[in-house]
């Protein structure tokens, strides 16, 4: 049997289960509705950007701007609601529009000017962070009854844990993304692009439309994550969510998606986010460990997953055709 494309996904699932078992073995209290509810709530915005990042990475690209887009959106919302007196719903629509257009514009630059996504989205990252500063350098609180109402929506679990709206929004995002990636032509084109853009083009994949679409999805979801973040914190702050793009990339890779594109699953990303959340929860339960341990463990996991992908890559290529002349390729 040759390796199935699902193997990394199974490894992610196994990692999650192992991590869960290890946590529960030490802190039995971790196996509760309350912890589960917090896991979803606390990671809602990260989960949503990670979905967008999955699209981008699957297509062989990268989007470094998402952390800044979240911060920008949160400030944008706060300013709109406080200073312009706009209803939050209208502000949401505006924010989504702006972030989606921003993503689409980056996609268009990447495609039409043939610039590397790394550079374009790096510029996007600075631009959006700068825009957030322009709007406000201070943290802007959001006080609106509609916000209060949205924040009061939750489902109460038997032990009192609260599954809040934003957790459900994240799960909904994942479900929709699964549909979009695995069951639509657009989704198939994303994978095709990740395999080889040149081949995909000759096979009739509309490169421009797909690339622009992918970055629009990522930008739009970053905007949506910004909305969720704003609901989560009830404030907009231009210094918030620095480095979230890297967390999102980490979640995608730990979720079993190939960093070079073309292979992976949204479901994997979901568990990638949960694994990262679990580590954080463990550290909270422990109470002694520095929160930097989260970063260290995630670093280790990332390394392990990249190694795994390499090994699987070797295993397949070695079977199918003798890889030749490493000398010739180096």
């Amino acid at each position: 049997m040759r390796h199935s494309p699902r193997l990394p996904l199974y490894v992610t699932l196994a990692t999650f289960l192992l991590a869960l078992i290890a946590c529960v073995a030490q802190f039995p209290a971790m196996l509760s509705w309350r912890v589960a509810a917090n896991l979803l709530t606390d990671n809602a915005f990260l989960g949503i950007v990670a979905v967008g990042m999955t699209f981008v990475i699957l297509s062989g690209g990268i989007d470094l701007s998402v952390g800044s887009v979240i911060a920008f959106t949160s400030v944008f919302l706060a300013v709109l609601i406080r200073d312009a007196g706009i209803h939050p719903l209208a502000a949401f629509a505006l924010a989504l529009g702006v972030s989606t257009l921003f993503g689409a514009a980056m996609g268009a630059i990447i495609h039409h000017l043939e610039m590397p996504p790394f550079i374009v989205t790096l510029a996007g990252m600075f631009l959006m962070r700068g825009m957030a500063y322009v709007l406000s350098t201070d943290s802007v609180p959001v006080t609106h009854e509609f916000y209060g109402w949205l924040q009061s929506l939750y489902w109460r679990a038997p032990d009192g844990g609260r599954f809040r709206l934003i957790g459900f929004l994240m799960i909904l995002t994942f479900l929709l993304a699964m549909l979009a990636l695995h069951r639509t032509r657009f989704g198939q084109n994303v994978y095709a692009l990740g395999g080889s853009a040149q081949t995909a083009q000759l096979m009739g994949v509309p490169l421009a439309r797909t690339t622009i679409g992918i970055y629009a999805v990522s930008g739009g979801l970053a905007g949506f994550a910004g909305i969720v973040y704003s609901l989560y914190t009830s404030a907009g702050y231009s210094l918030a969510t620095v480095g979230v793009e890297l967390d999102a990339i980490a979640a995608v890779v730990i979720g079993g998606t190939l960093l070079s594109g073309g292979a992976g699953f949204v479901l994997g990303t979901f568990f990638g986010v949960l694994i990262m959340g679990l580590i954080q929860t463990y550290i909270v339960f422990d109470g002694q460990l520095s929160s930097w341990w989260t970063k260290i463990v995630i670093g280790g996991l990332l390394f392990a997953f990249i190694l795994l992908q390499k090994v699987l890559g070797w295993a397949t290529t070695a079977r199918i055709r003798p890889a030749t002349a490493s000398a010739a390729r180096s």
């Binding site: 198939q188 994978y191 095709a192 395999g195 096979m203 073309g262």
Partner: peptide, 18 residues
């Protein structure tokens, strides 16, 4: 160009007109 190695045979056959 041949096809996309990271897709299944069926996906390759039907890419663009699934």
């Amino acid at each position: 160009v041949n096809l996309l190695p990271n897709l299944t045979v069926a996906e390759n056959l039907f890419l663009g007109r699934q």
